[in-house]
Each structure stands twice: as C-alpha cells, then as structure tokens.
C-alpha cells in the first residue's frame, strides 16, 4: 500500500527543541561498599568470639560431669 506510506511519514526534526516527558520511575537502593574493619574492632570481635567459645566449652564440661 504505497498510498498509506505517503500519508504517514516519520518526522525527524533537524532544528528546534527536542522535549521529553520525565516519567518518575522507581529507584533502586545503591550498591553498598562494605566498610573495612579496624584492627581494634577485629581484635575485639575475635576476643568476644573466643570468650563465647570458652564459656560454651565450660558449660558443656560442667554438664558432662553432672
């Protein structure tokens, strides 16, 4: 159908302003860089973990003796 083609022709303006509608889209939360831990913090956490382990061991031992 050559007639239809001639009726609807695409328009690509070479001059003038180009406008675009800004549609609000949903936003993703941003990627998260993980903060490194300081030496002190690592030592604290390690000591806390060891202490918890020690307590667990002792509790187990005391249960077994009972």
């Amino acid at each position: 159908m050559p007639e239809v083609k001639s009726i609807f022709r695409e328009v690509l303006p070479k001059q003038g302003q180009l406008s675009m509608e800004d549609v609000p889209t949903l936003v993703l939360c941003k990627p998260k860089l993980l903060p490194l831990k300081s030496v002190t913090l690592e030592k604290l956490e390690k000591m806390q973990l060891e202490a918890q382990e020690a307590i667990k061991q002792q509790e187990l031992a005391s249960k077994q003796t009972q």
Partner: peptide, 19 residues
C-alpha cells in the same frame, strides 16, 4: 543520598568501620 547510601543517623556510609 541519591548516589551514596546512608547510615541510620543520616551520615553517608564510611569506607572504614571503627568501634
């Protein structure tokens, strides 16, 4: 905050965590 995540208190997250 549009580019940098925030902590609870409204500060940008740091690169290093201290106690």
């Amino acid at each position: 905050p549009a580019v940098r995540p925030m902590t609870q208190s409204g500060r940008p997250i740091t690169g290093f965590v201290r106690p």
